[in-house]
Simulated assay, not measured.
Amino acid sequence: MEKLFSWTSPRKVAVLGGGGFIGRSFVRKLVATGHVVRVGSQNPEAIQGLGAARGTGRVEFLKVSVNDAEQLDRLFDGADAAVNLVSVMTPDVQVLHKINVEGAHLAAVRAQRAGVKSYVHMSAIGASLTSPGAYGRSKGAAERVVRRVFPDAGLLRPSVVFGPEDSFFNLFALIAAVSPVLPVFAQHTRYQPVFVEDVAEALLRLLQPEHAGRIVEAGGPDILSMREMMAFVLEASGRHRFLLPIPAALARLEASVLEKLPGHLLTRDQVAMMSVDNVVHPGPDNLQTLDIHPVSMRMVVPEYLKTGVFKLYRQLKS
């Protein structure tokens, strides 16, 4: 059988949402391996720096909305492979459904009609129609509608993703920098943080024909409770703060206020999803299935927490 996607000959890969945190790492990997990358973004002007990614490939930019069929057709035209990374987490349930479910379905339909051979959809650990949070339910619904269009679409479900530009460890390090206490929400819930570069590598490998149709849950080598992760934030950033457990009822009350502020720093839906562990399950494949040996957060996070948290502060203000 002829390979539909290989590393030895250049292919055109369409990346919807390629300007995001994970998308930027993924695009750089594609360029490094010599592929032509067509990046679809609602704000392509802001990500022109990706055009300077090192490698023998090149990057094209298009303004694309996941809910616009004509724009999606231009993105997928002539593409051999496609990846949809678009997702939102918002307290507005209608927007959640429009982007995460309707958008995921439309993107898969237009990619299939354009003749795309390899397709991967970014999901999340906890994606399920029975999730306690609307976000998790939307991701579960998205998986279902994508698979109806592309039965052999790859699905990647990462846990919390870390890296120099993440909005998880950086955010809590920023709170620790300006507050005498560090709040701990759902202190006993477990997480399995995964390095953004490992997630990007998993996307690359899921595009290979031998991995078509896999459902891969991506987690790193460390499994920690939320309290243990907050203690790690303090250790990695070199700060001493009091860890303050927040009861669920108080967390919901705080979220009802914070979700109305720009950036939605905490929503009631996030609080609901914190009630269940966010770790790799025994059923689906994992990173080791793709021959990826994930990097520990302990090897990466301390390097950027001590220098970069106020960059996030400037981003939040803008």
Rank of each mutant, 00 (worst) to 15 (best):
G51Q: 09
F5E: 00
L312V: 14
P183F: 05
T56M: 13
A176I: 05
V109C: 03
G57Q: 05
A14C: 06
M226V: 13
E143I: 04
A236S: 08
F162V: 11
W7P: 01
A272W: 04
A248C: 05
L171S: 02
R11H: 15
V95K: 14
P164T: 13
Y119E: 03
A107I: 05
G103A: 01
V194N: 04
L72Y: 12
T189S: 14
D222K: 14
R214H: 13
R298F: 02
S275H: 02
M229G: 09
A104K: 03
V93F: 08
P294F: 01
M230Q: 15
S159A: 14
A142I: 04
G51R: 14
Y135Q: 00
R58W: 08
I99L: 01
F26Y: 15
S41A: 10
A79W: 02
F76P: 04
K317C: 10
A52S: 15
R54C: 09
K3W: 06
H211A: 03
P294W: 06
R190E: 03
M274D: 09
P91T: 03
V276A: 08
D77G: 06
S65C: 03
L207Y: 02
H264G: 00
G126T: 05
M230I: 10
V178Y: 12
R28Y: 10
A127H: 03
G238C: 10
L250K: 05
L171A: 10
F232I: 05
S296V: 01
V199C: 04
L72W: 08
D285N: 14
S128C: 02
G140R: 06
A124S: 14
K260M: 05
R74Q: 14
V88D: 02
M297C: 01
G115C: 04
